[in-house]
Design a protein around this nucleic acid. Structure first.
Length: 573
RNA sequence: GGUGGGGUAGCUCAGCUGGUUAGAGCGCAGGACUCAUAAUCCUGAGGUCGUGAGUUCAAGUCUCACUCUCACUACCA
């Protein structure tokens, strides 16, 4: 039993997230959190909406709302989508919370005291028509390299060349289209992460259990040499830049902290919010001087987030000189792509969390996305693969197993766990399988190897079907009802076991199975410590214990459905 | 352009520090069974491991070059 702190990368506030976001951070974090809870660990799973930055302001403007009001609405929408996907956050907070304001300002002040922040002047495009500074990618114009007319200020989408907004010919604001733009000086705070690169390198070198993807990205940035990063922006919506005494900082009246400075700090602030709302202690999770030295901290994120979590956020933590908890295991994922291309909100390509649940129940998505998690490379989502996962794994292998044996028990044994019969080679074989596969399954969960865990789960389900073929209670029933009882009894115990093992992945179906089997809530945890325990699993239900059939657990996806969805979500390109 | 991930059976992917006939699931072919959502179980056919060199007694596994693909490239997040 240990304490495990889990965070998933904060979903940006700007709209309900697509399946790629779900599959690369929130969902695996949830599956891991659920598995660790079942193993008896003390788990705290924290997430929050990342609410600051230019896109939030602009999205609110489009909706004709105040930014804060827009964020309220979108936070609720994302929270609701997460609930419907059965994401078991202990707390789903907001980076705009008061605690995050205070904590972000605290970090900025202490970093400045320690000489890790300094003020510098830079040049930035200002749009007179919009009355705002524009981030590089919100400035568009003609590419000086290839002549493409809609090149962005950071990069040309046509020739791929990296640009500076100053280079653009006839630049205009991507927000309003106005050509009334100019370069202005603006002063900002810079985080001197370069001065900590030695410490960061030592820390990354000590990392254990990180995917290759995570360490290699960190090493790449460190090898190139860290540049100091600006941590403030010319925006209204965000965390104000204040002096240590809380007064406004001169020259920073119209500025706020950069989202990437305050967003990771929100992991901590959201824990504070959780603690305040629930009468809990947050320090024992985050302060190594207050109990967190025993906490194992695991972060989940897509590969785009790795640099921020291995470099800039650790700079904040290490630079503070305060005893904050650093991440122990950083689980990074590649992307889920939409038929090999990018998900795109503007082109309506891909499926978003809210739409997904109109198409199929959350369990279907959870299984498919985790069984095909983009762990070692990008993974293409296709409707055909989705259909295959659901029909083959969930409906045929698991669903049909549960259905065939529970129906049979209800029909021939009055829905009661029968006694009688003796162990045969079939039971021996089954026990050997379980003794080998269950510990392996647990170890895959502990190592956060999701594809392997799912493949092992499936193999255990398949072993149930094979057992029934070997035991063939329907054959014995004609000549030796006691031996038929043996097969049915073991089969029913397997149904319970499968329900118990399926809980982290497909919580709804697992509940249905366990409810039908009349397994009490407090008897559903994972306790597979020894081979004796595993041996007892196939004879755990008492004789005469009443069960029901949950009937059809997973409706199959028809070819016709696939055609309709493919047409509806094909995108506009 | 630079850097990183990936390129292994028709498809999706395993293959740790190099070591006997390269694995799994799906799909396909044949067979078995009939309790079950025309489900399940068994057997089988499929691969010169992106290309070309090199190191080695031995390379999918190490080195180099090339190539394809995806991503990142610091003010989108």
């Amino acid at each position: 039993m240990s304490k495990i702190l889990i965070t998933s990368a904060l979903p940006y506030i700007n709209g309900v997230k697509h399946l790629g976001n779900l599959a690369g951070s929130m969902l695996p974090a949830d599956v891991y959190a659920r598995a660790m809870r079942l193993l008896g660990h003390e788990v705290l799973y924290i997430c929050a909406t990342d609410e600051h930055g230019t896109p939030a302001e602009l999205a609110a403007q489009v909706e004709g709302e105040e930014t804060a009001a827009y964020c309220n609405t979108m936070h609720e929408a994302q929270k609701s989508a997460g609930d419907k996907f059965k994401l078991s956050y202990d707390y789903f907070g907001r980076s705009s919370s008061l605690n995050n304001h205070k904590l972000t300002q605290h970090f900025a002040n202490i970093l400045e005291e320690r000489g890790l922040i300094e003020e510098r002047v830079s040049q930035q495009v200002y749009s007179n028509a919009d009355g705002r500074f524009l981030p590089d990618r919100y400035v568009e114009g003609i590419c000086p390299n290839c002549g493409f007319e809609k090149a962005r200020g950071d990069q040309c989408d046509s020739c791929g060349k990296l640009l500076d907004p100053i280079d653009l010919i006839e630049p205009y604001s991507a927000v309003s289209g106005s050509k009334d733009v100019e370069i202005r000086d603006t002063n900002h705070l810079y985080l001197k992460q370069s001065s900590l690169s030695g410490d960061l390198l030592d820390w990354v070198n000590k990392a254990e259990g990180w995917p290759h993807l995570a360490t290699s990205i960190a090493h790449k940035w460190l090898a190139e040499g860290l540049r100091d990063r600006s941590i403030t922006r010319d925006l209204k919506w965000g965390i104000p830049v204040l002096n240590a005494d809380g007064s406004a900082r001169e020259g920073f009246e119209g500025k706020v902290f950069y989202v990437w400075f305050d967003a990771p700090i929100a992991y901590i602030a959201a824990t504070q919010d959780w603690a305040e709302e629930n009468g809990k202690d947050w320090k024992s999770w985050w302060r190594t001087d207050a109990g967190a030295e025993d906490t194992k901290y695991v972060q989940f994120m897509g590969k785009d987030n790795v640099a921020f979590h291995t470099l800039s956020f650790p700079t904040t933590i290490l630079g503070s000189g305060e005893p904050w908890k650093l991440v122990d295991c950083l689980k990074a994922f590649n992307w889920v792509t939409w038929y090999g291309g990018k998900f795109s909100t503007s082109q309506k390509r891909g499926v978003f969390m809210d739409q997904a649940l109109d198409i199929a129940p959350s369990d279907y998505w959870r299984w498919h996305l985790i069984a095909n998690a983009p762990e070692s490379s990008d993974t293409a989502f296709t409707w055909e693969e989705f259909q295959l996962s659901v029909n083959s794994d969930l409906a045929n292998v698991l669903g049909n197993f549960v259905n065939r044996i529970t129906k049979y028990a209800c029909g021939k044994f009055e829905g009661k766990v029968p006694k009688g019969g003796k162990k045969t080679a079939a039971e021996e074989w089954l026990l050997k399988e379980l003794n080998q596969r269950i510990p392996l399954l647990i170890s895959f969960y502990e190592k956060r190897e999701f594809r392997k865990a799912m493949s092992e789960t499936r193999a255990i389900w398949a072993a149930g079907n094979e057992y029934l073929t070997q035991a063939a209670p329907w054959t014995h029933y004609k000549t030796d009802i006691n031996q038929a009882a043996m097969g049915v009894r073991v089969g029913l115990n397997l149904v319970s076991l499968f329900g118990i093992l399926a809980q982290p992945i497909i919580p709804d179906a697992a509940s249905k199975i366990l409810d039908a089997m009349n397994i009490p809530e407090n008897n559903r945890s994972w306790n597979f410590g020894s081979s004796e325990v595993i041996t007892k699993l196939i004879d755990a239900l008492p004789f005469g214990h009443e069960i029901n059939s949950p009937n059809v657990l997973f409706a199959k996806i028809e070819d016709n459905d696939v055609e309709i969805w493919a047409e509806k979500y094909k995108g506009n390109d």
